[in-house]
Amino acid sequence: MNDTLTQSPDNPVYRRRLWVHRVGIFLSSAAMALGVAFLMWILFTLLIKGVSAINFAMFTESTPAPGSEGGGLMNAIVGSFMMVGSATLISTPIGILAGIYLAEYGNKSMFGAVTRFVTDIMLSAPSIVIGLFVYAIYVANVKHFSGWAGSIAISLIAIPVVVRTTDNMLGLVPASLQEAAFALGAPRWKVALMIRLRAVKAGVITGILLAVARISGETAPLLFTALNNQFFNGNMNKPMANLPVVIYQFAMSPYDNWRDLAWGGALLITFSVLGLNILSRTLFNQKSQH
């Protein structure tokens, strides 16, 4: 009876709450629509500008000389792939193991609290600062830019993402599952690796993909570490071309051909990361259904 009176349209308190609810829903929907509209605007502009630069030469020819026609981004594509791949191989085991330590042993130790604090700082640290740090400790000592320096710089950006994702995912594992494994006599390290980590492997892989997406478009760290190379180079110990720096340099140039290639490179990075995320989510959904 009281509930009926409370929800009655004649009740002023109910009418006020209903209008507040409607206004909140309207503002939330408007904010979402505005964000989606700007996102679609960016993607549409990128698609229109970049499609014209996507051709066979883009994947088979190196960057052209200033003022020349033709050319492609093969050297930059290969360089980005090598550096991002190396950074992923560096950051993934370090980040997962650090996340496991924080989840298993870091809740009651000062070292774990300090590690979480430093990780949070690294998550929000400007990437240019990380680039300058690697330049000071590595590039300045070896006296030359290199692909390895670029890999180290972007791996320092990826590690905190993997650490926090792994730590958060392991925290979602029910305590009963861990207690059951302990009751069967399994050691703590085996419980962490074979039980808890396996239970949340989809979330951990998603964190790794987020880290890859984060570092794929980083420009500032590579300016101070890998620099650039107009020619094809497969030696990671020398300056190496990469898509973010090439896009930055070509977009600021006065040459129409270079600007077209910059749009094509931006489209390639954007849709590569988008396709990777869609593919991973599709595979995870299919696996969960089985």
Rank of each mutant, 00 (worst) to 15 (best):
M1G: 03
D3C: 01
T4G: 00
T4C: 00
D10W: 12
N11K: 04
N11V: 04
V13F: 01
W19A: 09
G24N: 08
L27Y: 14
A30G: 01
L34S: 11
L34H: 06
G35I: 12
V36A: 11
M40R: 03
L43F: 10
L43W: 11
F44Q: 01
I48C: 02
K49S: 09
A57Q: 13
T60L: 00
T60S: 02
S62V: 15
P64S: 07
P66G: 03
G67P: 02
G67S: 05
S68E: 14
L73I: 09
M74K: 13
V78E: 03
G79F: 04
S80M: 05
F81P: 00
V84W: 03
G85H: 14
S86Y: 05
T88L: 08
S91K: 01
I94M: 03
G95Y: 11
A98R: 05
G99A: 09
N107W: 05
S109K: 12
D120K: 10
I121R: 09
I121H: 12
I130A: 02
F133C: 04
A136I: 11
N141C: 03
N141G: 04
F145H: 11
G147Q: 09
G147Y: 13
A149F: 11
S151A: 12
I154E: 02
S155M: 09
I157A: 12
I159L: 12
I159Y: 13
P160W: 13
P160M: 12
V163S: 01
V163M: 05
R164E: 04
T165I: 15
T166I: 12
N168F: 06
N168Q: 15
M169A: 11
Q178E: 12
A180T: 13
A180Q: 11
F182N: 13
L184K: 13
P187I: 04
P187C: 01
P187L: 01
K190V: 09
K190F: 07
L193Q: 08
R196G: 00
L197C: 11
V200R: 06
G203H: 03
G217W: 15
G217I: 14
E218M: 04
A220D: 06
A220E: 05
L222F: 07
F224W: 10
T225W: 10
A226C: 08
A226V: 07
F231A: 08
N233F: 05
N235W: 03
N235E: 06
M236G: 02
M236K: 10
I247W: 04
I247P: 00
I247E: 01
Q249M: 10
M252S: 06
S253V: 10
Y255M: 02
D256W: 03
D256K: 10
N257Q: 10
G265W: 14
A266M: 09
A266N: 12
L268W: 11
S280M: 04
R281P: 00
R281Y: 02
N285T: 14
N285S: 14
Q286D: 03
